[in-house]
């Protein structure tokens, strides 16, 4: 069978969701941000809630997320996305509201807003991209940078005694009664993308049922910041990031999973 006979509309099995705009993504080659964007948009498409959804973009690499996500969106100041989302959700309690934030935004400058939005049980969804580095500003140390990891502001590796410990915000947030669904996923392999998408769906379904704050952390790569080829950065992530940031559900339906 000739390839031309296969490429027909009736044989289509996968194409980019129209909820992603046609604008080329501003991210580096191989960056997980694009995949993370897409699964969020696919979930919104599949739930049929595009007209009821308002997103909040952060400051960081995904500062322009609103250029790519085809829903009503607002750009927040650095770290304040959960507060901005709180303001929107309190004004429109019937709409779906989500934030999309990196580790510097959520776990450093925005720690207070994140923890208090979670503790109030704001009925919003947070998509949290953790790549252990400040990508946009050129690869500085993030709150989630691993011990020994080299960045432009920890050029000899993160030294815990003077630079502090990598912060597991997701485990911390799972302890709060205001969170309902808390999970850690990744998007580096097809299997993981499909799992992460199911998690994003569960998070939005949780919001639909007014169950409280839902959080999907996505451990991702930053090949530019880590100074690696994209595929190599994914391998490095599996080997080094996952042992410290293990994948899987941490809290489901308001109950901590296993020994969390």
């Amino acid at each position: 069978m000739d390839i031309k006979d296969i490429i027909k509309p009736e044989n289509l099995v996968y194409q980019k969701t129209p909820l992603m705009t046609d604008k080329p993504l501003s991210y580096c080659p191989g960056c997980g941000h694009g995949t993370a964007h897409r699964i969020v948009m696919e979930v919104i498409e599949e739930m049929g809630i595009q007209s009821e959804t308002i997103g909040v973009a952060p400051v960081g690499c995904s500062v322009l997320a609103y250029d790519f996500m085809n829903v009503d969106m607002v750009g927040a100041s650095h770290g304040r996305a959960p507060a901005v989302a709180t303001g929107i959700k309190r004004c429109w309690p019937e709409k779906f509201v989500y934030t999309y934030q990196g580790d510097g935004d959520l776990a450093a400058i925005g720690t207070a807003e994140t923890i208090h939005a979670a503790n109030r049980g704001e009925n919003i969804t947070i998509i949290f991209i953790n790549n252990g580095i400040y990508g946009m500003t050129g690869g500085q140390m993030a709150p989630t940078t691993l011990e020994g990891m080299k960045t432009s502001t920890s050029p000899y590796g993160r030294e815990l005694k003077s630079m502090g410990n990598p912060l597991k915000m997701t485990e911390l947030l799972a302890q709060l009664p205001g969170t309902c669904y808390v999970t850690r996923q990744s998007v580096h392999s097809p299997r993981n993308v499909r799992r992460a998408k199911k998690a994003v769906r569960a998070a939005f379904e949780s919001q639909k049922e007014n169950k409280g704050l839902s959080l999907v952390e996505i451990v991702s790569n930053c090949n530019s910041g880590w100074k690696m080829e994209p595929v190599a950065s994914n391998e490095w992530m599996v080997e080094h990031m996952f042992p410290f940031y293990p994948l899987g559900d941490i809290k489901v339906d308001g109950k901590l999973v296993n020994n969390q």
């Binding site: 100041s77 304040r80 989302a85 709180t86 004004c91």
Partner: peptide
């Protein structure tokens, strides 16, 4: 800081 950003979201 959170309050003014809630205002920003609400506005």
């Amino acid at each position: 800081v959170a309050a003014i950003n809630m205002v920003y979201g609400g506005a």
